[in-house]
């Protein structure tokens, strides 16, 4: 982790839909190679905040710079430098593994030879070489998920945004998935991840906890537990989340 190099920076980032303030003046900064956990109950405004940071949605107020580019005015450049994995794994089921990788390589303007070499590397790393020409629909959920992550970092972005990437898989598979995240972080990729699982929060370098659209706590898991006199991240989260006034 490189603490001198800030790659995500938000100041008073706000999004209103009519009279409803989904994200209310959030301020945070994330360093290069950091694994940043972005926690919050359903409806706390995580997804809205993340969409703004990815350049998918324009902020109502405040600013944010991602990979050095303004998310409101330079969304195109932001998108070029990030990877994104949605909750639904977002692969094309009717295409083969190779075709999925080739498609995303093409979308990010990678060369054919580059895509070929990278495809081999990725599948070796995932131990999925045999699946090269299999359709994604036939793969087990855990493999799809690993593949979806590899797709998100296929073009070697500086930052990868993961929106609840481990939904619906068992703890062992989740653990393996986090090994992939660590490996990416070791290569210098910044990981910005939302999750509902508090054991995963413990794996992060720092976490923020959102309640009612605002960031109520932001620190390392160890210091948060200390501050809230809690035994686990679950207790920290529960202490904060129950103050929420807004429902689902």
């Amino acid at each position: 982790m490189n603490r001198d190099n800030i790659v995500i920076e938000a100041h008073g980032l706000t999004k209103r839909f009519g009279t409803f303030t989904a994200t209310d003046h959030i301020t945070l900064s994330v360093c290069e190679g950091e694994i940043f956990g972005f926690l919050g109950a359903n409806g706390a405004g995580k997804t809205t905040a993340m969409r703004m940071l990815c350049g998918l949605s324009k902020p109502t107020a405040g600013t944010a710079r991602v990979a050095g580019y303004d998310v409101a005015t330079e969304a195109e450049k932001v998108k070029r430098n990030i990877g994104y994995m949605s909750q639904k794994f977002s692969l094309y089921d009717d295409l083969t593994v190779a075709e999925n990788l080739r498609l995303f390589g093409g979308i990010y303007g990678m060369k054919r030879s580059e895509v070929k070499a990278k495809t081999r590397d990725v599948l070796v790393e995932l131990d999925m070489v045999a699946t090269l020409n299999q359709r994604v629909a036939a793969l087990p959920l855990g493999w799809k998920q690993k593949l979806a992550f590899s797709l998100a970092v296929f073009h070697e972005p500086k930052i990868v945004f993961l929106d609840e990437p481990t939904g619906g898989v068992d703890p062992v598979t989740r653990r393996r998935f986090w090994e992939l995240i660590y490996r990416a972080a070791d290569r210098g990729v910044t990981v910005f991840v939302t999750t509902h699982y508090m054991d995963e929060a413990e794996y992060c370098d720092r976490v923020s906890i959102m309640v009612d659209g605002q960031i109520r706590a932001l620190d390392t898991p160890a210091r948060l537990k200390e501050t809230y006199h809690a035994a686990s991240m679950y207790d920290v989260f529960y202490a904060l989340a129950r103050t929420a006034r807004r429902g689902e």
């Binding site: 998918l56 998108k79 070029r80 994104y84 977002s90 979308i107």
Partner: peptide
């Protein structure tokens, strides 16, 4: 399928 989200987050206009 959630792929639209991924496409929009890509540099594709």
């Amino acid at each position: 399928n959630g792929t639209m989200e991924v496409l929009l987050a890509s540099p594709l206009s």
